[in-house]
């Protein structure tokens, strides 16, 4: 290794270690119902996050919101609720936000299950219990939500979105060998053990494919659970555009460099 580079690495490690020391000293806050964490990544969702958190806080689980460097009042809105709010100082992407939330949840030794839940209001809170039930049987390490398993679960989906998603499903089947019916669903549940094994390195939207390929590589036991996705006007505007799938493919290729 070159001198300049090892110096850079040493400095970086020193800074990183300071933070780690901090983590070791303080004891994180505890709740009685501490074994399930719901990770909610949010970027500029001030309009809807209140309603989503209002729903989630009625469930007997811990919630951690990861504000991914929002420029609106997402952070302030989230602080109004009895949830943990983590804030990225700059925008990194949904993949990075999920990994931050998961790492936070795993700091607590009581954590048994970790659920990922989108902050734009397209998921229903009732689905969480169904995902967790399948993990609690002990037969699976990961439970993945699917909007195409049951007829009528993709409410108000348009044809273009549907075609793009089907193409993604086909590509995933070819590249990972996983026979899934929905590959880009933000609602998933992991056992703590599985969540610790999965390392999301794709900061942006390619994380959905990355999680699946790691499930395949790590030979984790997975199942699909039907969940309802409601496409509101808000989520249509805020959600991923179809042309953005090119970004995903680019990120996936770039990860090999």
């Amino acid at each position: 290794m070159l001198e300049g580079e090892s110096l850079q690495k040493a400095q970086f490690n020193a800074i990183a270690q300071q933070y780690t020391l901090h983590l070791g000293e303080c004891s994180p806050p505890m709740k009685e119902r501490a074994n399930v964490w719901i990770v909610v990544p949010a970027y500029n969702e001030a309009q809807v996050i209140g309603e989503v958190l209002n729903q989630l806080c009625q469930l007997p689980y811990n919630v951690v919101v990861v504000d991914d460097g929002s420029v609106d009042h997402t952070y302030q809105r989230a602080l109004d609720f009895p949830v943990t709010v983590l804030r990225h100082v700059c925008n990194l992407g949904q993949g990075a936000a999920l990994q931050t939330g998961i790492e936070y949840a795993l700091l607590f030794p009581e954590t048994e299950f970790i659920v990922t839940f989108d902050s734009d209001g397209q998921h229903g809170r009732d689905s969480i219990a169904q995902l967790l039930d399948s993990l609690k049987t002990g037969n699976y390490d990961v439970a993945l939500g699917s909007r195409f398993l049951r007829r009528g679960d993709a409410v108000n989906i348009n044809l273009r979105k549907q075609l793009t998603l089907k193409l993604a499903i086909l590509l995933t089947r070819i590249t990972t060998g996983l026979k899934l019916t929905d590959t880009h669903n933000g609602l998933r549940a992991f056992t703590a053990k599985a969540a610790a094994q999965i390392k999301i390195k794709q900061n942006r939207m390619a994380h959905a494919s990355e999680i699946l390929s790691q499930i395949s590589e790590l030979k984790l036991r997975y199942c699909e659970i039907p969940v309802t996705i409601t496409y509101t006007e808000y989520s249509k505007v805020k959600g991923q555009k179809i042309v953005q799938s090119i970004n995903i493919i680019w990120d996936m290729l770039r990860s090999h460099l």
């Binding site: 970086f12 990183a16 933070y19 983590l23 806050p29 936070y104």
Partner: peptide
């Protein structure tokens, strides 16, 4: 990414304690 993540987690833990 690693720096921003560490900072986010450290801030939350400090804030709550």
């Amino acid at each position: 990414t690693v720096l921003v993540r560490k900072r986010a987690i450290a801030e939350a833990i400090e804030g709550s304690s």
